[in-house]
């Protein structure tokens, strides 16, 4: 947190304009936080309630007694330790794969001039416009042909090739990076690969952090791909394991909320630490000026 310590501390008792502004900002941030956190707070509180209390009227907010057992039970419903390892593997490989697989083409689209650039870019964009629901079956047949069914490969391999969403995101960001440094480097005989590694990628750290977070969240929460391709419980992901709490007849609400809270924690940790990269980004782009 030290990096973000308030720049302007109140000088004596005189509140400067800047200080008042900071206080106002803080107030708005706190009110917003309340709005954003209340539903999540309810989720966490519900996850700690004993079953009888969930159905009380009028609703009671504070769990009494606090049932930590809901978490123990949710955890014991499956091999969650195994699921966590699988999800971590899938998410980690996808983060690496997405960052490199998408930033390379994004670099070409943003910084290089080549024949067919506009057409290829448009084709890439349009592949995002076909709803996945109609490509699931043909993709399944394709992966079955590759012999990938029942393995983690369908969850991992596609991540190493460009994801249009991230490629587009990074391209927009790369376009905003000034050409001065690049031109200077090219004068010194640097090739495009050097420019990519030495100039563009370091400057794009905030955008790469964004891609990393999105990739993590997407693959941590993704249900449909694991559901279709995984049949061996040893390969199940956390999202697939959690989906078992849902059923039409007997709703174990506290367990479900415990499970949802549990799924949120790793995302929270990852995000909290990655968002610091944004701050490093500001230093870099500020200094290049």
């Amino acid at each position: 947190m030290s990096l973000q310590a308030p720049a302007d501390k109140p000088q004596g008792w005189t509140f400067t304009y800047k200080t008042r502004r900071a206080v106002l900002q803080l107030a708005v941030l706190l009110v917003g936080s309340a709005v954003f956190l209340t539903p999540l707070g309810w989720m966490v509180l519900t996850s700690l309630k004993p079953t009888e209390q969930i159905f009380l009227f009028p609703p009671e907010f504070i769990p009494k007694p606090v049932e930590w057992d809901n978490y123990a039970e949710a955890w014991s419903q499956g091999e969650f330790w195994t699921y966590t390892q699988n999800s971590t593997l899938v998410a980690a490989l996808n983060i690496a794969g997405n960052i490199f697989g998408s930033s390379l083409p994004a670099f070409a689209f943003a910084r290089l001039r080549f024949t067919g650039r506009r057409v290829l870019f448009l084709i890439m964009l349009s592949t995002m416009m076909v709803p996945i629901w109609v490509t699931i079956v043909p993709t399944f047949l394709l992966f079955k042909f590759f012999g990938w069914n029942g393995t983690l490969l369908p969850l991992i391999v596609p991540g190493f090739f460009a994801v249009p969403f991230y490629t587009f995101l990074l391209r927009q960001y790369f376009l905003g990076i000034s050409h001065e440094l690049e031109d200077a480097a090219r004068m010194d005989g640097a090739n495009s690969l050097t420019i990519y590694f030495r100039i563009v990628m370091p400057l794009a750290r905030p955008a790469l952090a964004t891609v990393a977070i999105f990739a993590f969240v997407y693959h941590w929460n993704d249900l449909i791909t694991p559901l279709i391709y995984l049949t061996d419980e040893k390969l199940f992901t956390v999202a697939l394991g959690l989906s078992r709490f849902r059923n039409s007849y007997r709703m174990e609400m506290s367990h479900m909320m415990a499970a949802a809270t549990f799924a949120l924690v790793p995302v929270l940790i990852i995000y909290f630490f990655t968002q610091r990269l944004f701050i490093q980004g500001i230093v870099l782009s500020g200094s290049k000026g």
Partner: peptide
């Protein structure tokens, strides 16, 4: 040539 090398991850995947 450089550009198409950079594009390879997308082209192959596509």
């Amino acid at each position: 040539l450089e550009a198409y090398l950079f594009l390879l991850p997308w082209i192959i995947g596509f």
